[in-house]
Design a protein around this nucleic acid. Structure first.
Lengths: 233, 233
DNA sequence: CTTTAATGTCTCAAAATGCGACAATAATCG
DNA sequence: CGATTATTGTCGCATTTTGAGACATTAAAG
C-alpha cells in the first residue's frame, strides 16, 4: 500500500481520465502541467483501499472539474510493465519536494485504468491540484508532448468515441442544453474526422426522433436564423 | 507483493478470461471447478511483477488451452471494493491445503482486468491447474453458478461480442478453416440472439468480399451439398 | 432595396435491406 | 429406380436508407 496525505491507496493501480469538451469548432481535453517541469499529463489518481474503482474516478473528476454526474466510461486498462518511466516521475517529485521515502511507492510500476468523460465545456472550472501549475483545455489535434503513454491513451479514447458514436455515446453532454443542427453536425464531424452532407445529416437526426425542436433563435448572426434543438430524455 | 510457487506477483491485480468456443449449435465458454468445493470460476490468474498485463493473460491462456496466438481482447476492468468474497476464496484455499500465511494475500481485494478470447473448439485441450478438478466447456446459456462477480463478467463479455460483431471481431476464430454458410449464419444468430433471414445473410456476406468459396463438400448429410467457404486474409 | 450566405426542405438516383419464391441437388424411401 | 423431401444458391420485388444536388426562405450586411 501507499500513503498520500495520510490516506491509504492501492499500490500498482492508478486511473487516468480523458476529459472531452467541445468549444469553438473543436474537441478539447483537459491536461495538467506539473510545477517547474514542463511535463503534461492526463488528470489521474489513485484508488483508496476500500473504494470502488469507479467511485475513485468520479471523486477525482469532481475535484478537477467541480462536476458531479458526468458521463463517464471506462475504455481500456494499460498494463505494460515498462509504461512507467521513473525518470519523469522523479522529476515531478523532486520539483515538488516530495523526494522522501514515504512517497517512493509512486515510482513503482502502475497499471492504469483509463476513462473518458464527456462534459459541457462551459460548466467547468478546471482546478489544478497541489503538484500542478495548471489544468486547462487543449485542442485534441494540437496536444503538447505528454508523459509516459498518455498520448496513446488519448488516441485510444478517440478511437473509442468514434466507434461508439452511432450507438451509445450521449453526445449532448458536450453541448449546451439547446443547440443548432449545425453545432450538432460539427460535433459529429470532429469526432469522425470527416465532413458530412448537411441535408442528409439533418434528415437522419430528425428521423431518429430524439430531438425536440424549439423556436428559432435570434442569435445576432447573419443570415437565416436556425431552429434550436434539445435532446429528449 | 504476493508469492506463489516462488514467483512474485502484483498484489491487488488479477485477470479473468472469458474463452469462447462454438460447438454443435451453441456458444460455449471454459470454466474451472475447484477441488472439493463445487465452486465454478472463469480461468484467471495474476500478473508477475515485471510482466506486461497482456503477456500475463496470454501466458495463462496458453497454459489452459495449449493455444498460442489466439484472438484476445480486453473488454473491461472490474474494480468494486466488495467484489472479492473472502468466504469463497477461503473455502478454495482450505480445500487445497493452502491455508498458510504465505498465500493470505490472495484473500485481499483484487481488481480484475477481463479479457475475451475466441478460439476453435476443436484445437483445444483444456487443462485444469493444480487447484481445479476440471476445465471444461459450458453452454453460455446454461452456466453453473459462478463465484464472485463472474456471471456479470460473462454477461459483459457477451454484450461486447454483440456490439462488435459488425466491425472488429474475427468470427472465423470460432470456426474451422472451412465452413458452410449455414454454420457462419448460426454463429451470428447465437451471438446476436436472434434469427436472420437466410437469403439476406448470404447476400450480405458474399457482398463483403471477405469470403473465398471452395468446391462443394460431400458431407454425407442429406440434401443438396453446400459450398465451403473460408475467410480471406 | 439588393446582395449574400445560412437554413429547412425536397427530389431523384443509387444502394441496402427484408422477405418470399424458384430451380437445383442429393440422400432417403417406397 | 423413380418419387419424395429437405437444404442450398439465387433471384425478384417492394421497402427503406443513403448520397447529393437544388430550391425557396430568411435575416443581416452593404
Amino acid at each position: 500500500m501507499g500513503f498520500l496525505n495520510g490516506i491509504e491507496y492501492l499500490d500498482h493501480l492508478a486511473y487516468d481520465s480523458v476529459i472531452f469538451g467541445f468549444a469553438g469548432d473543436n474537441l478539447k481535453i483537459l491536461l495538467m502541467e506539473y510545477h517547474d517541469t514542463a511535463l503534461f499529463a492526463l488528470p489521474g489518481g489513485f484508488v483508496q483501499v476500500d473504494e470502488d474503482l469507479n467511485d475513485a474516478v468520479r471523486r477525482g473528476l469532481a475535484e478537477r472539474t467541480g462536476l458531479q454526474n458526468v458521463y463517464l466510461e471506462q475504455f481500456y486498462t494499460f498494463g505494460d510493465a515498462k509504461r512507467n518511466l521513473t525518470g519523469e516521475m522523479n522529476k515531478i517529485l523532486n520539483a515538488n519536494n516530495l523526494g522522501d521515502d514515504s512517497v517512493k511507492w509512486i515510482l513503482n510500476r502502475f497499471v492504469s485504468v483509463a476513462y473518458l468523460a464527456l462534459i459541457n465545456y462551459k460548466n467547468v472550472n478546471p482546478r489544478p491540484d497541489e503538484i500542478s501549475d495548471s489544468c486547462t483545455w487543449y485542442d485534441v489535434n494540437n496536444l503538447p508532448p505528454l508523459i509516459q503513454d498518455h498520448t496513446l491513451i488519448v488516441e485510444k479514447a478517440l478511437m473509442t468515441l468514434q466507434s461508439q458514436l452511432d450507438h451509445k455515446i450521449p453526445i449532448f453532454e458536450l453541448l449546451e442544453e439547446q443547440f443548432t443542427m449545425a453545432e450538432l453536425q460539427r460535433v459529429y464531424e470532429v469526432i469522425l474526422n470527416e465532413s458530412l452532407h448537411r441535408g442528409s445529416f439533418q434528415r437522419k437526426m430528425l428521423s431518429l426522433g430524439i430531438l425536440k425542436r424549439h423556436e428559432k433563435q435570434f442569435n445576432g448572426g447573419a443570415h437565416k436564423a436556425p431552429y434550436l434543438y434539445s435532446f429528449l430524455k
